[in-house]
Structures are given as C-alpha cells and as structure tokens.
Design a protein around this nucleic acid. Sequence first.
RNA 1: GCGCGAUUAGCUCAGUUGGUAGAGCAAUCCAUUUACACUGGAAAGGUCGGGGGUUCAAGUCCCUCAUCGCGCACCA
Length: 732
Amino acid sequence: MKEKFNKPYNPKETEERIYQMWQDGGYFNPDTSIKEGYTKPDAKPFTIIMPPTNANGSLHAGHGLVMTIEDIMVRYKRMRGYRTLWLPGLDHAGFETQVVYEKKLEKEGRTRFDIEPKKLYEEILDFTLTNSSNIKSQIKKMGASCDWSREKFTLDEDVVKVVYGTFKKLSDDGLLYRGKRIVSWCSKHQTAFSDLEIKDEERVEPFYFLKYGPFVIGTSRPETKFGDKYVVMHPDDTRYSAYKHGQKIELEWINGPITATIIKDEAIDMAFGTGVMTITPWHDPVDFAIAERHGLDKEQVIDDHGKLLPIAGEFAGIHIKKARPLIIEKLQSKGLVDKVDEAYKHVVRTCYKCGTVIEPQIRSQWFVKMKPLADNVLEKIKAKDGINYIPEHYEKITIHWLENIMDWNISRQIVWGIPIPAKICTNCGSGFVDLENKMTTCPHKDADGVCGATLVKDNDTFDTWFSSSQWPFAALGFPNSEDFKNYYPTDVMETAGEIIFFWVTRMLMLGLYMTGKLPFSTVYLHGLVLDAKGQKMSKSKGNVINPLDLTEKYGTDAFRIGLIVGNTPGTSLALSENKISAYKNFANKLWNISRFILADTAGPAGDVKLEPISFDPHFKAWTEQDALRVKELHALAKEITKEMDEFKFYIVAEKMYHYAWHELADKIIEESKAILSGSDDVARLSRRQFLLLALITILKSLHPFMPFVTEEIWSALPMEKKIRLIAESWVA
RNA sequence: GCGCGAUUAGCUCAGUUGGUAGAGCAAUCCAUUUACACUGGAAAGGUCGGGGGUUCAAGUCCCUCAUCGCGCACCA
C-alpha cells in the first residue's frame, strides 16, 4: 500500500509525469512498440490521421473533443494489439490564419496591404511557428497518445511537393482549368472564395422598380445598373411579344441616354416582378450565364474594393454602400423610379468570416472540374464499397452534395499559403502549370498562331483546403515512403461534422483520385461543443470555455470522460462545468476503490491484518457468489468490447462508470467488508482475487477514457510481469 | 423550393433487429469520524410533439401535421 492513496487523487501531481513517461517510453510510436515487444510485428495496422490543428491560436473546446475521441479510439486499438499510428499535424490554415494575423496587425495600426508580400509571409510564418509550440503542449495536456516523431506541417517541403504533383496531374488529366469566371469576392479580405466560404444571410431591404424605357425593371441593387444595356425577357412572354430579340431601343438612363438591346432568354421567371430585367454580367452569376449564352459584352462596374468605376459617371469612386441612396435620389429626380417595395425579403451572400456582402466579380482563377472526381466517390459510397459514416445520415448529406457539386475555385489572393506553381500570360491571360519554373513565353495557340508573350508568376496561393484535402496521403509520405505503404489507407477520419464538405468529402475525392483508394474507411463526425446553455461559443458572446481551464481545475481525465458520456456522434454537446466536476469525483472514487482493494488491512475496523497477495490470472477457486460476479464481469467486458467496436463510447463510459461506482463500490465492496474480516479463509481469498480482477477490468476498460488516473493506479497493482497500462491487452 | 436532423423525466440526453420507458445532473427525504463527504441510503419524477395507419404488440415501422435546428439552391 503506497502512501499516495492516503490523499485524494491529485491530477496535477500525476498527469505531466505520466505523459512524459509514455512519450519517453516510445509507447505512442508503433515502431518502438514493436521493438519493445508491446505490439506484434505482424499486427494489423490501425491508423488515424489527426485533423491538422490550426496553428493560429490556442486549443478550444472543439479540439478538446477531437483529441479525446481520437485518443479513445487509438488507445483502445493499441490495447487490442493493433500496430497503432496516430499521426499529429499542424495546418497553416491559409485564410483563417491570415485573418487572425490581420486582426493582430490592425491592433498594431498596420494593414497587410502596407507590407511587402514576402515580409508578410515571413511574419505570419513566425507567428504560426510560435503558436504551434503552444498548441502542441496543449494537445499533450489532453493526453493525446499521438506519435510526435511523425508530426507533419502542411507547409513541409515534402507535403508541398505532393500538393504540386496533384495540381500537375489534375492539369494533365484535363481536370484543371483557368478561366474568366464569376467568382465570389470579398472586398474586405481582397480574395476570391469557393462556394463553401459563403454564408447566406436573410435580409429585408428595399426593392426598386425602375423605368427602363418602355419597361419597368426590378432590382435590389441599383448601384450595379449603370452599365446595363441588355434588357431580357422570356421568349414566351406575350406581354412583350412586340419586342424582338436583338432589337435596339433608345432610352434615358441614370447618367443620360443609352441604347439598349432586347434579349429573349428562358432563364427569366415571367411571374417575378414585371418579367423583365436588365443584366449586369460582371457582378451576377445568372446574368453572366445569360451573357455567355448570347455572347454579350461584360463590363465591370464595381472595383475590387467595392467602389464604383468611371462607368458610373459622377458616382465613380464612391463606395457602393454610400452610393445607393444617392443613385436612388438621382433616379427619383429624373422620374425613373416607378415604385419602391420597402420590405423585400431576400438572401444576401456574405463572407463567412467578416459578413461583408460578397461582390461577384469576373476573375481568372484556377478551377478544378469536380464532377468526374465526385462521380468516382459517389460510385464507392452507393456501392457501400469501403466507406462507413458515423452517424449514418452524413452519407445522405454527402451524396446530395456530390450530386450537385460545383467546380472548385482553388485560387486565393492571399500571401499565407502554398504558392500556386503556375505562370500567367501578360497578353492573353492564359495560365500554365509550371512546377520547374522554366516557362518564359506563352505557348497559347489560336487562329493567329502562338501568342509568345511574356509569362509572369501566378501570385496567388492555394485554397488551404486544397492542400488539406490531400493530407492523409501527403502526411504519410505519398507515394514511396514506408509509412504510406504500411498505413495507407487509414482507418478512421474523425472530425467536426461542420467540415464535411470543406474537408472530408474533398479528401475522399482527391485521395481516391491520387492513390486509387479512399483515404479512410470510417468517417466519424462529432458535433459542435456548445456552452452549458446550449449556445454556440463565441468571443463576442463571452461564453467561450477554455478546455485548459477545466483540465486545470478538475483534471484531464474528468474533462475527457465528461465530454464523452452522453455525447452521441454527430449531435452537439452542451459543455457544463458541473458535469466535468462530477467526473472529478469519479476519478477520486476510482482512487478510493483502489485504496480499499490494495490495502494491506481491510475490514470496517481495519483490525484484521492480511498477508499481501498477488493477482492470479488463473485463479479458479471462486466461491459460488464470486463465480457469479466473475461471470457478470466477463459479460460486461464482452458487451463493452462490442460497443467500442461500434464506436459507442458514450455507452461504454457510462456503463463502466456505473459498474465501478454503483456495483463495485456501493455493493461489492460493502459486502466484502464482512468477508474480508471474517474467518472463512477460502471465501476471503476468492473475494480478494475477485476485487483485483474487477479493478483490473475497470482500469483497462476506462484507460482509453481516463488514461492518467488509470495508469497511476495501475502502477500500484500487485501483479507479476506487469507492463504499463497503455501497452496492456484489452479486457476481452 | 430541395435535402438532412431533432421533438422522451425540471435540465442534458440514451433507448441496438418492434416485446410493460433508462442514465447523469438538479430537486426531495434520511444517514454521518465509513476505502472515499470529492460519501452512503431511500423515494419521487414521463399519455415518448399532435393526429392517423400497419401489428397480437409501436418511443421504435409507414403516412401526415406542427414546432425548432442545419445544409444546399435560388427571382433580377
């Protein structure tokens, strides 16, 4: 009996020491585990690639959940004898990090546009590396048993090389194109986005009916209308059958007389407004499509900063926000406003990060043709071939998204990211993938021959999701490394349900495309971690719970199991401090159960001195009562093993909690007091062996959930040939 | 508009192939130098959102409605 059991369990004295012991002992590394004999050399691999952590801040509650769930999976499989690899990584997190850094600059009174790009890149790199050491120590605090010797960073040279290889292959296979297309542009962040970075927001705004020659057109955005010289109506609309396609009409418009052309197009909804609209192809995707169909001119009206261009005449240089009322005023004075619907409810597309209204702009960007990639994955999913979603309904959501997929704009106009290895022609605007940086003149051919103009480097960077979507194979050293051969495809991808499209589904597409295999066979998605009232945590609400405060206060084990019990996959989780503190009590309960069982003396008065015994794994001389207990315990072990395999961690944690506290402690130990202090030596030995067996079973099965306290108690168990609990075999 | 969820005890949620409703927390009462007060014991608490159907039997399967949440696409 060690003296430490005389005091309540103290996580602070334990956790750091034990983590260090595990790490120094090589338990997290499958190679050393084989070398030390903890894992058989021919053991089947089990691999989880950790979602690369954004290195731009500190650990939040969501990370706490990721680390806990994945560590449970990994520790369980390790104990089951798998050659287990959990590969940690850090994400440069392109745009996300740049936004964080820009806020920092803002506080310092600087802006990114004042800093030379190269210098800015270095500043952000420095910032990221500084933060990353912080993040890593926090991941360790969570008890994550990942293999730090294999840690990767999304900007590592070999990772970038893989990303470039993918870019090239997409180009060679005709799945990459660069073209002038409508992109979603944020005028604050000065970059284009993919369709996923856009957040729809419902707004109520005025809707203006304007007199456009003989027509009345409706718009919620009068500031885009300066260049509108095409008026479009449905070919079947009898109200306008007098007007013919291509017919020119003269009319008075905002800044004077213009000539407009009639266009008939079936995209027009006859029932909406007056059934007539003018188009602004540069700033609207629908209008762009109409213009493309009919070969119409496209003119830019709004610049990259949201200000009106000279086409707006007297309004040039004014920001669209300020210009709108002024334009309406002018239209009114010219008698061109027919009427105004003040309460028009519609959806506005905004930047998911800053809420700025997205301005569609025509720009040349790199796009990936997604349909062929999506079709390959769809085939696998629908054939139930090698991919399993937890919870299941994410499969339907994925199918729906894949069936309606849009091409992916992977160019970003930010510094912080992987530079796009391409050249752009200064004359014709064509783009060319150039990994070796060798091309100097434009090889683009058309009817007039080869362009031949000077090429310049593409200054854009990749969408951060383009690189992270290649993470499972890139982090393992695709295509030739031993790790790639040994551990790919991986087993489980565990991440937040929120990023199922951003990341998970794109990993399936690029993984299958590049390696011929889906990168993982199970997708496990967890929900949001909310505050105790079930509200989303946000800095502005001030309800952010820092996981490190909780681990500090209650211990990591209490935090971990508190997150898991009652949290089914996919559903969001209300994190209450109350619950965590309840599991701190549980850690202490385990401590005291152990104290009782391991004590040299036992019985209510402590008056019977017992000889120390060692746990006998082959003990058979059970009393009838204990034989029943053993049977129950084995049945429980079998049940929870099945549930672990089904990823039902919430049930396992709860069952073991219940067994330890309300069976073993409340009933079995209570009834043991009489047996241990009694005179029946046979019964006493049977019971002492049973108590050890029960404790061992509890410690093993709770180890994935509460690794520290279980390992600490384990070290005091009277057993022969004992190894560390982390490397022990599972209960079944 | 299309799609996906949710609705079960005061709160947070389980409930696997249909077989008399479960846990944790909270609240109530009782106990008090017990391995542990970071404690023990007891009792209480639910027409499983409404309606309909299938079935010997429905929280569970089907239809429908309502409310809430999320995603996607949009009409100028």
